[in-house]
Amino acid sequence: MQWLKKRMRLLLALVEALTGEAETVSYPKTELELPKGYRGAIQLDEEKCIGCGLCVMDCPAHGLELEKESKSVYKLTYYPARCAYCGQCERACHRQAITHTNQLPGSTTDPESIIVILKDQKEQEDSDE
């Protein structure tokens, strides 16, 4: 009897599972909910960025590149194909210019095609100040 009772334990779980709802979803048909702090591709608030390069220094995956000619002429480029979505750049930027979106770039065989130029600061704009 005892043996049967113990054996029933798994059978019971089996019946429970059979009567309950399925826990998996058929993915593309059902939307998935992303968590609050999901780290997708990054975006830049151009107003805030001053081209200091701190984010580039701390990026572990060479996902950001800064070409700097002078204090006011620089170009910040983002390479999603290299990015590890680690969140270092978001934290490194002292001006909170970088934030993560909850989107990932689509897959591609040509990593060049998804490069984003985050900011291209030219001389003229600088003269307005």
């Binding site: 968590p35 999901y38 780290r39 969140g87």
Partner: peptide, 12 residues
């Protein structure tokens, strides 16, 4: 863990 940190595996 994902809800708190934003990542399932790399919690950062």
């Amino acid at each position: 863990m994902e809800e708190m940190s934003g990542g399932r595996v790399a919690h950062a």
